[in-house]
Design a protein around this nucleic acid. Structure first.
Length: 751
RNA sequence: UGGGGUGUCGCCAAGCGGUAAGGCACUGGUUUUUGGUACCAGUAUUCGGGGGUUCGAAUCCCUCUACCCCAUCCA
C-alpha cells in the first residue's frame, strides 16, 4: 500500500478505528449484461484491494435484477476477469436473484409500515406525475390504497396475475423532493420475461431496492460504486433506515469511473464496434475489454499496477493511454526474452563469409537478471530490416549506410560494399563484408559502430504472421464510429523470425528487439503459422524525433485561451441592503464581511446579539463571517452548541491580547464541539499566548540549528521559507507563541 | 432552470492553516552491442476567476464561473 491513501481507504481506516465495523467487507457487484472492460478492472482492484489491505473480504455478486438483458455467458466472463486478475472472492459467487424471496419479505414489511404502495398509473403517467427538476411532482391517487389492498395486490403481482406494466410497487417518500430520485421511487415492476437464473419470477426488484438490501444481507460494510449513483445514495439510506435493520449496516461511497483517451468505454459503443464488424469480437486485441487486453498480451500485473497508479478520486478524468502502455512495458521489461524478428526484409549478402555457424546468444540483456540463451544460425545470406539501411541518410542516422558500418546484433560488424537496385531504382540487395575479428563477445577489431541491428538467417528463419495494433480511434475523445482509426490493424503476413522462437517456444511473450513486445495469439497461432500480437511498442526516441520534426514543419498548435466572464451577483433585498449600509458606515466593516453578514439572516442576528455583549464590531464581524459561518454551514439546521455571548468572550480575549488569533481558532473549534466557555478552555489547556522574546528565542535557535539547509535556502533568497520557520516554532510551542513576535524574531535571526 | 458533485503542471494525483508529494508524458545528460532499460538532472512563485479573514491561505469565509450526474417500469 502506498503511503498516500486514497479517500476510500481513509474512510475504511477511520471506520475500523472507530469500531464501527470489526472487519471490512466489500463487494464487486456487476450486472451480467456485458463483457467486463478495464473500468471493471478498476472497480475490482478497488474492492478486492481494499479488502486485502485491511484483512477483510470481498464478495463477487451478480446484480441480476433485470431479466431482459442478462445472461450466464456474462457471469462466466465476469468470474473469469476477476480470476485472471488474481483476486479471490469470498465463498461462492453471489446473485441478487438468490435474494428475491428475502427482498420480497422486506417489501411486504415496507407495505405494512405504510411506506410502500402499489401504483397503477401507466408508465407515461408516472413520468408526468414525477414533475421536473424545477417543478415538484404530485402523488398518485393510488397511494391512498389501504395496507390490506396493497398487500393483496403485491401478492397477486408476484403470482403473475397482471400484465407487464399494470402495477408497480413504489416507496412512499416525497413527490416534491429536490432529489428527483426520491420522488416515490419504483421498488418492483412486473416483467413476464424468463430470467436466466430465477426462471419466471413475474416481479423484479429495482436496483435502488435490491442493491442496498443485498449489501445488507451479505454484511457489506463499504458499498463502493461510481459517481453517477450519488443521487441514489439517499434511497439507499432511506430503505435501510426505514426498515430499521440491526446495525451495522453498509454505507455507500462513490468514486469517478475510469476514462482512457483514444478509446470508448460504454457498453453501448463497445457493442456497436462488435456488431458493425469494426473489430473482431469482444476479445479483439484493440478492445478495452479484459478479454481484449488479455488476448493482446497484457499481463494481470500490468493492469493492477495501472489501476494503482491512476489512483481513486471523485474528479471526472481521462487517463492518458501512455500510462497504461508504460505499465505493460515496465512489467514485461524484466520478464520477457529478447529475440530478433525482421518485418520488412532486405537481403544482405556477406560476400566474404564462408560456411555457417550457430551463435550462442542470451535471451536477456545485461540488465535483466535472468538466465537463458539460444543458438542463432548465421550464414552468408541474411535479412535485415529495410529501415536499417539508407543510401542518403539524414544526420543522426546510426544504422547501415554506404559509409557507416553497423553491428549485426549478437554477431559481427558489417560494412556496405555495394547497393543492388532493380530497374525502378528500388534497392533489392546489399553486398556487404564482415570483420571476422569483430564477433560479439570477443571483438578485437577495435571498430566503433553507433548501432546494432536485428537480422535473421535467410534459410534458417521462420515465417510468422505479425499483427500490429494501433489505437482504435484517431480522436482523443472519440464520439463514435466516425472517429475510428482506419489503420488500427496492420497485418504482416511474412515476417521472419529466428528459429528458436518457433521451435523451442521459450515463452509466450517476447520482446522483438527494437520493435516492441509481442504475444503469441492464444487462438489463431499454430505451429504451422505462428501469429504474434503486438502488445506495445518500445519507446522510440528516434521515431519520435522524426515525427516531431515533421510536425514542426506543418501545423502549428492553436492556443486555446480561457476567457473568463463574470456573472451577475443577485442584488440584495431592502432589508439586507439596510443592514449592509449600517455595517459598513456605522461599524466600519469592509464590504465583503458586511455583505456576508447582511445576506445571511442567521449570521446577522447572531452578530447583533454578540455586539450587545461586547462592542468590538470589526473583530466580531470577522470571526462570525468566517469561523462561525463555517460551523453553521456544517451543522446545517441543527442548533449550534455555542452562543453569541461565548463568541464575545472569545473575541474579548483576543482584544486583550491574552490569546492570538491562531489560538482563538483552536478554542473556537473546541467550543463548537463541546459548548464549553472559551475562558474555561483557555485555562484548562493553558492556551495563553507566549509573547516574551526570551522564551521564544531559544526555540528559534533550536529550529535554526535543526534546519541548516533551509537556512541556506532562505539566505539565498527563498523568502517564503520564513513561514516554514514560523510554523516550526509554533508547532513546538503548540501554537502558543505569539506569531507576530515570532515572525519578527525569526526575520531578525535569519538576516 | 431545482438538487447533487467536481475544478491542483500536457494527463492522472497527494495535500485538510506553516517549504506545492509522487507517477505518466516531456527536455537535457550518463551508462548501454536494443535510438530499449537503468541512473542523474530539469520542468506549477502557484492551486478555475475575483474578493475577504489571518503574522501566514491550495486549505477557512463570500461570490462568480466551467464541467459532470439526476426527470428509464436500466443498473
Amino acid at each position: 500500500m502506498s503511503e498516500n491513501k486514497d479517500f476510500l481507504r481513509t474512510i475504511v481506516e477511520e471506520d475500523l478505528k472507530s469500531g464501527k465495523y470489526k472487519e471490512v467487507v466489500t463487494r464487486f457487484p456487476p450486472e451480467p449484461n456485458g463483457f467486463p472492460h478495464i473500468g471493471h478492472a478498476k472497480s475490482i482492484c478497488i474492492n478486492f484491494g481494499i479488502a486485502q489491505d485491511y484483512h477483510g473480504h470481498c464478495n463477487l455478486r451478480m446484480d441480476d435484477t433485470n431479466p431482459t438483458t442478462e445472461d450466464t455467458k456474462y457471469v462466466e466472463a465476469l468470474k473469469d476477469a476477476v480470476d485472471w486478475l488474481g483476486f479471490e472472492w469470498d465463498g461462492n459467487v453471489r446473485f441478487t436473484s438468490d435474494y428475491f424471496p428475502k427482498l420480497y419479505d422486506y417489501a411486504v414489511e415496507l407495505i405494512k409500515m405504510g411506506k410502500a404502495y402499489v401504483d397503477s398509473l401507466n408508465e407515461e403517467e408516472i413520468r408526468e406525475y414525477r414533475g421536473t427538476v424545477t417543478q415538484t411532482g404530485k402523488r398518485s391517487e393510488y397511494a391512498m390504497r389501504s395496507i390490506e389492498e396493497n398487500l393483496d395486490l403485491f401478492l397477486r403481482m408476484k403470482k403473475g396475475e397482471f400484465q407487464d406494466g399494470a402495477h408497480v410497487l413504489r416507496a412512499k417518500i416525497d413527490m416534491s423532493a429536490a432529489n428527483m430520485k426520491m420522488r416515490d421511487p419504483l421498488l418492483y415492476r412486473i416483467r413476464h420475461t424468463h430470467h436466466y437464473r430465477a426462471g419466471d419470477a413475474n416481479i423484479y426488484p429495482m436496483y435502488d431496492f435490491a442493491h442496498c438490501l443485498s449489501d445488507y444481507i451479505e454484511g457489506i460494510t463499504h458499498s463502493i460504486c461510481t459517481l453517477e449513483f450519488e443521487n441514489n445514495r439517499d434511497i439507499y439510506d432511506w430503505v435501510l433506515d426505514t426498515l430499521r435493520l440491526t446495525a451495522p449496516r453498509p454505507y455507500q461511497h462513490e468514486f469517478a469511473r475510469l476514462g482512457i483517451n483514444y478509446t470508448v468505454m460504454s457498453k453501448r459503443k463497445l457493442l456497436e464496434l462488435v456488431n458493425t464488424g469494426k473489430v473482431n469480437g469482444w476479445d479483439d486485441p484493440r478492445m478495452p475489454t479484459i478479454a481484449g487486453y488479455r488476448r493482446r498480451g497484457y499481463t494481470p500485473e500490468s493492469i493492477i499496477n495501472f489501476c494503482d497508479q491512476i489512483g481513486i478520486a471523485k474528479a471526472n478524468s481521462t487517463v492518458d493511454v501512455s500510462q497504461l502502455e508504460f505499465c505493460i512495458r515496465d512489467d514485461l521489461n524484466t520478464k520477457v526474452p529478447r529475440v530478433m524478428c525482421v518485418f520488412n526484409p532486405l537481403k544482405v549478402t556477406i560476400v566474404n563469409y564462408v560456411g555457417s555457424e550457430d551463435i550462442d546468444a542470451s535471451y536477456y540483456p545485461h540488465d535483466v537478471p535472468k538466465e537463458g540463451s539460444r543458438k542463432i544460425p548465421l550464414s552468408r545470406e541474411i535479412y535485415i530490416e529495410r529501415d536499417d539501411f539508407m543510401e542518403n541518410p539524414p544526420k543522426d542516422y546510426f544504422r547501415l549506410t554506404p559509409e557507416q558500418s553497423v553491428r549485426l546484433r549478437h554477431a559481427y560488424i558489417i560494412t556496405c560494399k555495394e547497393v543492388i537496385k532493380d530497374a525502378n531504382g528500388n534497392i533489392t540487395e546489399i553486398k556487404a563484408e564482415y570483420y571476422p575479428e569483430s564477433k560479439s563477445g570477443s571483438d578485437t577489431s577495435g571498430i566503433q559502430v553507433k548501432s546494432a541491428i536485428q537480422w535473421v538467417d535467410m534459410v534458417a528463419a521462420k515465417k510468422i504472421e505479425v499483427r500490429v495494433y494501433d489505437r482504435l480511434f484517431k480522436d482523443e475523445a472519440p464520439e463514435g464510429l466516425e472517429d475510428i482509426n482506419p489503420d488500427s490493424l496492420e497485418i504482416i503476413k511474412n515476417a521472419l523470425i529466428e528459429p528458436a522462437v518457433v521451435i523451442d517456444k521459450p515463452d509466450e511473450r517476447f520482446q522483438f528487439e527494437r520493435h516492441g513486445y509481442f504475444y503469441a495469439d492464444p487462438i489463431d497461432s499454430t505451429d504451422e503459422t505462428p501469429v504474434f500480437n503486438k502488445i506495445v511498442g518500445l519507446k522510440d526516441s528516434w521515431a519520435k524525433n522524426q515525427t516531431t520534426e515533421n510536425r514542426h514543419n506543418g501545423e502549428r498548435k492553436t492556443q486555446i485561451q480561457k476567457v473568463h466572464v463574470d456573472g451577475e451577483v443577485v442584488p440584495m433585498n431592502k432589508e439586507e441592503q439596510a443592514l449592509f449600509d449600517k455595517y459598513t458606515s456605522e461599524f466600519g466593516l469592509n464590504s465583503e464581511v458586511a455583505n456576508t453578514l447582511a445576506r445571511d439572516k442567521q449570521l446577522s442576528s447572531f452578530y447583533e446579539e454578540s455586539l450587545s455583549v461586547l462592542s468590538s464590531p470589526i473583530a466580531l464581524a470577522n470571526i462570525i463571517a468566517n469561523e462561525v459561518a463555517r460551523e453553521f454551514k456544517q451543522i446545517q439546521a441543527d442548533k449550534p452548541k455555542f452562543n453569541a455571548k461565548q463568541i464575545s468572550e472569545l473575541v474579548k480575549m483576543i482584544d486583550d491580547e491574552i490569546i492570538s488569533n491562531k489560538i482563538a481558532k483552536q478554542v473556537f473549534e473546541e467550543m463548537a464541539q463541546t459548548g464549553e466557555n472559551p475562558t474555561q478552555i483557555v485555562e484548562a489547556k493553558g492556551l495563553v499566548q507566549i509573547s516574551d522574546p526570551s522564551k521564544i528565542l531559544p526555540i528559534i535557535d533550536e529550529v535554526i540549528a535543526k534546519n541548516p539547509d533551509n537556512v541556506l535556502k532562505f539566505r539565498a533568497g527563498n523568502t517564503k521559507l520564513l513561514g516554514f520557520f514560523v510554523g516550526q516554532v509554533l508547532k513546538i510551542t503548540e501554537g502558543k507563541a505569539n506569531p507576530q513576535v515570532v515572525n519578527e524574531l525569526v526575520a531578525e535571526k535569519l538576516k
